[in-house]
Amino acid sequence: MNTSNFQNSGKYMNPYLAGFLLGLVLLATIFITGRGLGASGAIKDTTIAISHAVAPKLTESNPFFGQYVGAGKDNPLKSWLVFEIAGVLIGGFISGLVSDRLKIVTESGPRVKPRARWAFAAIGGLLFGIGAQFTRGCTSGAALSGMAVLSTAGFIALLSIFGTGYLVAYLGRKLWI
């Protein structure tokens, strides 16, 4: 297990060009399907599908999960966002392949050991899993896609995610610098 070399920015695409292309992908999504991109929704659907496979009765009786499973409802995995995120896995893999970045590594700040990094990553994911339910989306589905259609919700998500990030960045500085 080694920590990856961070200073390899030269191999990445110019960020403005990447942003422009990402914007075109999002625009194509809105133009073709009438909806935006997302990510946390796929994690939600996957969680509910797992929970339903393990404990169907309990999942159906849960007031939150019960909205998505039960009689007459499709498997939660048969959702737009699950297919889209499956595509993200494939697309990310292809990009890693062509740019020679496929490697099993743990990336962390200079003072953080890999095992601690795993724990912090899992906690971060947990918080995103919870927060994205209240906001009805994460950085992709709420902030980015919401901003593209000029929804108030999108700008609220943007400001509260990044605003809070800057507020607590000082407390978390030892994780990254």
Partner: peptide, 21 residues
């Protein structure tokens, strides 16, 4: 709820270093 969720995610971003996508 949108603001509170965003704050939870902001903390998650600093700790976890990623967002879901």
């Amino acid at each position: 709820p949108g603001i509170v969720g965003g704050m939870i995610m902001g903390i998650g971003f600093i700790i976890g270093g990623y967002c879901p996508g």
